[in-house]
Simulated assay, not measured.
Amino acid sequence: MSTNSTQLDSRAFGLACGLLWACGVVVLGITARFGWGKRWERLLADVYRGYNETTTGLLVGAVWAFVDGFTGGYAFAWLYDRLR
C-alpha cells in the first residue's frame, strides 16, 4: 500500500468543508424565516457580518461560511498530512 493513499487532498477537503458549511448556514437562515433556529441565526449574524434571513443576507452568509469552512478544512487537512 502506498504511503500517499492516506494523505488528504487539502484543497478538496477545504472545498468540501466550505460547501457543506455554506449550505448549512443557508438552511439555517431559511428555517429561521419560519421561527426555527433564531438563536443560532443571531449567533451567526454576530460572526458573519451582513448575514440574516433575507435572500441577500443568506448569500452574504453563504460566502462568509464558505470562506470560513474552506479555511478550516484546508488547515485541518494540511495539519493532518504533516502529523501523520
Rank of each mutant, 00 (worst) to 15 (best):
R49M: 10
L8G: 05
S5T: 10
R82W: 02
A12L: 11
E41L: 12
T56A: 12
T6C: 12
L59T: 08
T54H: 03
L59P: 00
F70N: 05
D46F: 12
F13N: 05
Y48S: 02
F70A: 08
L59A: 13
T6G: 13
L83P: 07
Y48R: 02
C17I: 04
D46Q: 12
V60D: 02
D81C: 11
N4F: 13
G18H: 05
A77T: 03
K38M: 13
I30C: 01
I30Q: 02
L59E: 01
M1T: 10
V63F: 13
T3H: 09
E53D: 14
W21R: 08
L19D: 01
K38R: 11
G57Y: 00
K38G: 12
A45C: 06
F70M: 07
W78G: 14
W36D: 13
S2P: 15
L15T: 12
W36A: 15
L19H: 02
V67E: 09
R33Y: 00
L43V: 09
A45Y: 05
A75N: 13
W40G: 12
W21D: 10
A75Y: 09
G24A: 05
A12S: 14
G35Y: 00
A45L: 01
E41C: 13
N52Q: 07
Y80P: 06
I30R: 05
L43H: 08
S10Y: 03
G61Y: 00
E53R: 10
D9Y: 00
V67R: 09
A65E: 00
S5V: 14
T3Q: 13
G73C: 07
G24P: 10
L15H: 09
A45Q: 06
S2C: 11
A77R: 01
L79G: 05
T3R: 14
G35A: 04
S2R: 14
F70L: 11
F76W: 04
V60K: 06
D68G: 13
W36E: 10
